[in-house]
Nucleic acid binder design. Structure first.
Lengths: 140, 140
DNA sequence: TCCTAAAAAGACCTAAATAGTCTACTTATG
DNA sequence: CATAAGTAGACTATTTAGGTCTTTTTAGGA
């Protein structure tokens, strides 16, 4: 239950690179892996859920590779994180109702739910197009 | 590198209960553990870093126990999370400068730094007094 | 048509973090 | 001085994260 693991971090770097290179041609993972210093076999495992989420399209065979399935403006960082971390919520107790028997009386649950919302709102507000653009200071 | 583990969740429940019961009398962990359904031995291990962080005070001997070291209004959820998770940042690559050799060129780093800030600002904005009060909807 | 480059799929492995337990010891109050 | 409490540290189990290996499938080009 880690919020941001290397899955999200590697995956986002892959997608930002694809966004930068445009959607015209398919790009093979090996070249991305080399440029980004990410193990190719590991990166290839991240591609599967990204395809399932409708973020990537793949083309097999020679001259094959990956390209974005949608425009960079239409893919948010939240889409990527959810596809790769495989859950919508960062906490068991806020995820499914009934996960915690105390949820009715628990005074801390709203705090974690609120945190969840803050995180999701932030990640939803950044698109791949934003990320691919010039270095932006999101901390302001 | 998990953002919110049972350490933070259990620890916050302990502190909220102490905040609710006031600072007048020391409260023993055993009774908190029973009411909150938390293994007492595990809870007792969380007390140590909370003491070190100046959040809890302990009193030994018969009629001993724990009480808050500061007023509930002056303890934020961020204080608690940092004391229990033992780190200030949720990501290696944003934590220490130089942790990632690519940080100069990395287009995704500012996104994670911004996330870090958003989370810290949120947690810093909630005090134990807030949490102990009536159920608040922090998601609004 | 065969060769090669690329994705697909799934088993497998290792290390680290998390959650929790056990035991022995120390301290303070009634 | 008995007892209820905290202190300290080793120990264990489970899960997750990170990464690797192998085989198969697909498509383009000489």
């Amino acid at each position: 239950m880690s919020l941001i693991t290397t899955r999200s971090r590697y995956g986002l770097r892959l997608l930002v690179e694809l966004a930068e290179r445009g959607m015209a041609q398919a790009i093979d993972l090996g070249s991305v892996a080399r440029r980004q210093d990410i193990p190719e076999l590991y990166l290839s495992k991240l591609a599967t859920p990204l395809k399932a989420a409708g973020i990537l399209r793949s083309e097999r065979g020679a001259k094959g590779g990956y390209r974005l399935a949608r425009r960079p403006e239409d893919i948010t960082v939240l889409d990527v994180v959810e596809a790769l971390e495989g859950r919508s919520s960062l906490l068991e107790c806020t995820g499914e109702p009934g996960a915690c028997v105390r949820s009715g009386e628990c005074k801390t649950l709203p705090i974690w739910s609120g945190l969840d919302k803050v995180i999701q709102d932030y990640l939803r507000g950044i698109s791949l197009a934003d990320a691919a653009g010039a270095a932006i200071d999101y901390t302001i």
